[in-house]
Nucleic acid binder design. Structure first.
Lengths: 243, 243
DNA sequence: ACGCTCACATTGGCCAGGCCACCTGTCAAG
DNA sequence: CTTGACAGGTGGCCTGGCCAATGTGAGCGT
């Protein structure tokens, strides 16, 4: 019992949550002015500094805008915060990566900035070296990121990063380690990485995208197999994690 | 002269910038502990509440993590903040949208939740109605967003939103208005919107993606034409915008 | 009657100082 | 060796205040 520990959420974070929720639900509309800080603080029963922490966070996130003497207004549409706090499933992570990463490989092949290619080759060499030396490797994330960098598209690079964020949970790394336990799978992966790098360096965008798509597809299937086996062993999920 | 007005950046925002810059440059590494708030505030010559505003913002953004009695640690990798504050070009916005949106259409066709289809049809009907009534339309963003929602993938939906954010500048809306000045172009767009909705509703993912890709490609070419004409008229760009 | 100026209320930006709660390492008692 | 109390360090939060930018309306002159 008490499997789920108490998640402490700071007062400022709770205030931010409330404001976001109000925007999501449409209670506060876009370009609408919020009550003055002093008043809102009184309404929410927090001090002004606490409220200001929440405001500062939302301002950096592009949700609010505050101006001295004028007040604070909402600048984000509900759609922009619609997915905040939604849980992301492993299959959704792969959906996103399959949408983004082959395209990144294609863009990288189209642009081919010398320093990016060098950086990419370096990441590939590191992976090769690790594989030759130890017969295994921990992850090829560096290559994925190098491709994103070579694509020179900040919007897609950010999107990839937000997908990769989910691959850092202990749950995900466990599954990955399990998926990479098969020596044959590893060899195939390393080979795909080599090929995608050469395709990009040669400017063969379509081929690079194709290899990369296949790479991700294999990887996905191996991971989801692990997920399936796990749920077979333990039908009732008891893994809980928060953030 | 003095074309660029002084952009007032709050002290808290500047502190956040400094910390992000330190992570980008590798001066602070991942999982490294930061100095205590009181000390860091002294170093940066700001008060603790101001520093705390910056911390709150970075915590919401997933860069820091603070725990009572333990201190604050960096949890973001440099790659995760690498693209912060980078200017995004119109061509990059289209690169990203072309990567994401056809895939979203395909996912929407694969999932086909009834309420999402209804919502999508509604957005399409609104556009139709506006077009029939006025012979023009302001934007079909609602349809794009409805497709994103129907795809049920928060990672991709967020990515699309961050790309669409750039389409809200006055500069972009001007270009769009100009691109949509051709009645023939509008008719084609409305027709594509109708078709993509029907393909999605019918579960024809490949076709939906294909139509949507064509739609975006036409749109991109019209917009970038407008951009080109504009730069022909006025070779030296004097448009400046900040933030 | 119209336009202009300027004082003032409003509102966010920032600070000082303080109290409390929590975590961690230490050290003595069992 | 284990257990528990304890103290120092640290973040969480508050009160109260001053300053600076903004917008407004009264009062002025024309």
């Amino acid at each position: 019992m008490f499997a789920a520990p108490v998640v402490v959420r700071s007062a400022a974070a709770q205030v931010a949550d409330k404001i976001v929720a109000a925007i999501q639900s449409g209670r506060i509309k876009r370009h609408e002015r919020l009550p003055p800080e002093r008043e809102l603080a009184k309404q929410l029963q927090v001090s002004r500094p606490t409220l200001r922490e929440a405001f500062a966070a939302l301002e950096l996130a592009g949700v609010l805008e505050s101006h001295q003497g004028r007040g604070s207004v909402v600048v984000a549409a509900p759609s922009q915060v619609a997915n905040w706090g939604i849980e992301v499933l492993p299959t959704q992570v792969f959906e996103a990566r399959l949408a983004i990463e082959p395209h990144l490989a294609e863009l990288a092949a189209a642009k081919r900035y010398p320093e990016d290619i060098a950086h990419l080759r370096e990441a590939g060499a590191d992976l090769d070296e690790e594989y030759e030396r130890t017969g295994a490797y921990r992850s090829d994330l560096a290559v994925h990121r190098a491709i994103a960098r070579a694509a020179r598209n900040p919007v897609l690079a950010d999107a990839l990063e937000s997908a990769l964020k989910y691959t850092e949970s202990s749950r995900w790394t466990d599954l990955r380690a399990q998926a990479l336990a098969e020596p044959r799978a590893r060899e195939g992966h390393v080979d795909e990485v080599r090929r995608v790098i050469e395709h990009i360096a040669a400017g063969e965008g379509v081929e690079a995208a194709s290899v990369w798509r296949a790479h991700l597809t294999y990887y996905r299937d191996e991971m989801l197999d692990g997920l399936k086996k796990e749920s077979d062993r333990k039908p009732a999920g008891t893994t809980g994690s928060a953030s």
